[in-house]
Amino acid sequence: MKALIERLEKKFRVTDPVMQRADETFFTVDKADAVALITHLREREGFTHLSFLTAVDWLEDGKFQLTYLLNNNAMKADVGVRVFLDRERPVMESVHHLWKQAATYQRELKEMFGIDFPGSPRIDEPFILEGWHDIPPYRRDFDTKKYSEETYFPRPGRTTHDPADYMKQKLYPEE
């Protein structure tokens, strides 16, 4: 695993690798190098299976983190490729030509985070939501509780609590 990272570091701009487990490593790669690195991993290093592709919203840093988790079944190892995007203009190169299911993941990311993948098939079609008009719901600045209370009729008589506060009141009142 270490050897792999060293090989990658020679070719691509790979930074802060974290060995989470013996068979699982996460590292960050520069956005410009990302698709080249992923193609390299798939073609040369045997990481042929894309487990998933998802995003994390780092609202405070103004960044989106894309995570591609690639799996090498011969080596029994995973690498998580982190790519950071600018939160203002989140655009990323598509990898749908490498894996068929990547198009589906990218459709979901476009809908749920608003990250664009130009060229990905059916990227603009709604995937899960229908008639959504607010900001993409998985972004951190979207308040689901507020939206729910404004849109759907809360039943009178049901007092709704914030789960964390309520647990504190009920279970640990003295703290």
Binding site: L129, D134, P137, F142, T144, K145, Y147, S148, E149, T151, Y152, F153, P154, R155, R158, T160
Partner: peptide, 16 residues
């Protein structure tokens, strides 16, 4: 279906 139940604060499920 009565008051949202588990998903009372979800943006995609109705409450009543």
């Amino acid at each position: 279906t009565i008051n949202g139940g588990m998903y009372w604060d979800s943006y995609n499920t109705i409450n009543r």
